[in-house]
């Protein structure tokens, strides 16, 4: 029963059900949506269980990696959230997650987002293209100086915002063209894999 043919029909049912939302929210879409929520959470739960077993529980209990009891305990403390009285116990686990994240992004941002980008913008101003590039980058960076409200700065910030709008528009246009191929991919599945139509119409 669980063969490719049944699977393809089921996949087609789900695909069309999801597409049907484009017309309006309807019972078919709603069913597909709810099935998918169950499937996605089931996938996550299975993977989550397996990863806890593989990377923490087994190494801690069978290989003597006792340090791994720390994240296991921190993880288990999160369950205190199911009790209104003791939900504060989970805060240290959240603190650990946020602390590590903040440290990683804080240290990474200065090098990757700031100094490397600024160095890359230090380019020879010997061509129109380089000058335009440089002016837009500098002006748009000034747009993010929020406390500078001097009159002289306003045209620079405006120029920067126009520069960003050009960037947004171009990215928009480019993505529109590339998404067409995604859509045709799903159409190909429905026509050729499910309905078994032959490309070329023979």
């Amino acid at each position: 029963m669980l063969n490719a043919t049944t699977g393809t029909w089921l996949a087609a049912f789900l695909t069309l059900g999801l597409f049907s939302w484009m017309y309006k929210e309807n019972p078919w879409f709603r069913l597909v949506e709810h099935i998918y929520v169950g499937a996605a959470l089931g996938v996550l739960a299975s993977q989550g269980y397996q990863s806890v077993m593989d990377i923490a529980w087994k190494p801690a209990t069978q290989q003597g990696k006792t340090l791994l009891y720390v994240p296991l305990i921190l993880g288990a403390l999160l369950f205190s959230r199911w009790s209104k009285k003791y939900m504060w116990v989970s805060r240290s686990s959240m603190g650990f997650l946020v602390g590590t994240l903040s440290a990683v992004v804080m240290t990474g941002a200065i090098k990757a987002q700031l100094t490397a980008q600024v160095a890359a913008t230090m380019m020879p101003l010997n061509s129109a293209n380089n000058i335009i590039f440089f002016v837009i980058t500098a002006a748009a960076t000034m747009y993010f100086v929020f406390t500078l409200q001097a009159k002289w700065a306003s045209p620079i910030m405006d120029l920067g915002k126009y520069g960003m709008m050009i960037a947004f528009g171009a990215t928009f246009g480019n993505t529109v063209m590339s998404r067409i191929s995604l859509f045709t991919g799903r159409l190909q599945f429905l026509l050729f894999q499910w309905l078994k139509l032959t490309p070329g119409g023979s």
Binding site: A109, I110, Q113, L114, Q117, V118, A120, T121, I132, F133, F134, I136, T137, A138, A139, A140, T141, Y143, F144, G160, G163, M164, M165, I166, A167, F168, A170, T171
Partner: peptide, 14 residues
């Protein structure tokens, strides 16, 4: 202009 504009968003947020 696109690369320049996007770069400024990145620098500005750092």
């Amino acid at each position: 202009p696109t690369t320049a504009g996007m770069r400024a968003v990145t620098i500005g947020a750092a």
